[in-house]
Amino acid sequence: MAASTAAASSTTRRSPALRSLTSRYAILAWSGALWLIVWFVVPILWMIWDLAASQEFQDTLSFSGSERTVNLRAFRNTFETAAIVTILCLIAGYIVAYFLVSVGPRVRIILMSLVLIPYWVSIIIRTYGLIVTLGRKGFVNETLIDAGLIEEPLRIMFTTNAVYLGMVQVLLPYVVLTVYTSLEAIDDNLFTAARSLGAGGWNVFRKVTLPLSLPGVYAGGIIVFIISLGAYVTPALIGGPGDIMIAQIVWINATEFGQFGTAIVLVLPLIVVTLALFVVFNRFVGVDRMLGTGGTAEQR
């Protein structure tokens, strides 16, 4: 007892902040964080640091002519696509989520599994499925031709619209889940109260439902937008020749041409936008909200 007392009195003399840093839980939490710093933060910072000073980097910034045009177009394309996909996802996702909370528990489970099953399946497989369905010789075209509705197969794949369709298809579950979570959290009594105060269906939605579900809308929107900015698979596999996005140019520069500097210049704006959205998201929506702390499925 005496020995431990002596040891402890030296602990007591240390400042509280220092003591809290060395506590067991702090060590546990920081060891995980340290791993992320070493293998996540450092590689990214190192890449930026090293290449910001390189000649390649300077060249890309001052580049003129065709390459510059291509890059700028890719940027416009990427942000435009991300914005359109986000809006489409929000509209379609909201409709589905709203419908999900309005049906009974049994139907809800079945419909929910239609959202969750794709959610757990690899994006490549889903894109593959889309090609099978909508391709030149795909299910939809064959059916329409057989039915005599069209003569020539519709060209759906390998167009800009295919990219929208593919990305919405892949990203929709995020919005459905986030909006569903916030819609479900609304107290049913509120609707009754609103109606008893004389609000009609549309007004209840506008004045009660929509404002209360906004956190889910923001969360879903931000997630979809961030993922869309870095989208590579869908545009590469089913996009048309005009649908070059930043990701593809980055990919070609880094792996085919070995021009890291160019790749990094292109990636820098994405980093800035992502971090900014992350901060906004953290402050106004909250991380827990996005990932839900209850079910497993909602955590993807």
Partner: peptide, 9 residues
Amino acid sequence: VFPTLIYGL
């Protein structure tokens, strides 16, 4: 939430 594109690079 960080784009895997950037992390991969």
